[in-house]
Write a protein that binds this DNA or RNA. Structure first.
Length: 278
DNA sequence: CGGCCAACCTGTGCGC
DNA sequence: TGCGCACAGGTTGGCC
């Protein structure tokens, strides 16, 4: 599920329920996800007020009034569900690893089948120096991401462009799906070496990456509806992809009669059209 | 340091 | 029905 647009959607969905709201009780039921959940997890969150929610790359940051920052990552299979006060009390399922109840009586559950996600702590003073945060590249939707920075990141790289765009140090938040989509749109073969991507292609990649992500965020936003009113699972939304997951199907690019193929690169599937992606 | 792979986990779907 | 394998939207430690 979670690349930048999905994480952004989750963060936006949590805002009306958590921002400015005090947590009554928090409880972690699993000792560890990808890394151990802090021993003092329950105590640090319980009776603490969330001042702000932010997203950085694929991380959601929860800043508390006492300076605590909870860093959350959804991994491959993480999701959040909101159960509004007054509705039926939810039953905790097998993979609901964290349960939070707010002062308003709303209940938020963190569910993660594969446990590749994480919840760890930092604080407002050192969050930007945190090991998980400090080396992350520019946000693709912000001004810090531009032709020059992408050019600089690619010109000395020998790895395939697919691997480069998945590298969070080069640009934040892209994952397997949106890299496939951006490369398909710009006509760049995923196996092309980074240092062989031309200036023109770099100038096309920047707005294409922005557009692919923005459109996905819009799609997510339109499914959010009002989670302040309704129970719901956050971050899931139907989105149609042009290349990802379409192996064997016709290429949808105008005037292209090719077929989408799949190859494996760095242990991940790449979907592309060898007719229009070179 | 750059680049690549295996590993972390659980579940599902497919071929035999 | 069962078994084994491939695969799933992320990240990183260790190896060359």
């Amino acid at each position: 599920m979670p690349e930048l647009p999905e994480v952004e959607t989750v963060m936006r969905g949590l805002k009306p329920v958590l921002e400015g709201v005090k947590i009554k009780t928090a409880r972690a039921y699993a000792p560890k996800l990808r890394v151990p959940i802090p021993d003092d997890f329950d105590q640090r969150l319980s009776d603490n007020r969330i001042e702000r929610l932010d997203r950085r790359s694929k991380y959601v940051l929860m800043t508390f009034e006492d300076g605590l920052v909870a860093i959350m990552h959804l991994g491959m299979s993480g999701r959040m569900t909101i159960h509004k006060s007054g509705n039926d009390v939810p039953v905790r399922g097998k993979h609901d690893h964290i349960v939070i109840e707010t002062e308003r009586g709303d209940i938020i559950m963190y569910n993660d089948t594969r446990r590749f996600g994480m919840w760890v702590f930092s604080d407002t003073k050192s969050i930007n120096d945190h090991a998980l945060i400090k080396d992350i590249g520019p946000e693709p939707l912000g001004n810090a991401f531009h032709d020059g920075i992408l050019q600089a990141g690619l010109e000395n790289r020998k790895s395939p462009i697919k691997a480069a765009l998945l590298d969070q140090k080069l640009v934040a938040g892209l994952g397997n799906i949106y890299v496939c989509e951006a490369l398909w749109r710009t006509g760049i073969h995923p196996a092309r070496l980074s240092n062989a991507v031309t200036q023109d292609e770099i100038e096309a990649l920047v707005p294409t990456i922005r557009d692919v992500l923005s459109k996905a965020i819009e799609a997510g936003g339109s499914t959010l509806k009002d989670y302040a009113q309704v129970d719901g699972e956050l971050g899931y939304f139907q989105h149609s992809f042009k290349a990802y997951g379409r192996e064997g199907e016709a290429c949808l690019k105008e005037d292209c009669d090719g077929t989408i193929e799949r190859i494996v690169q760095s242990n991940r599937s790449s979907f592309f059209c060898s007719t229009c992606q070179r």
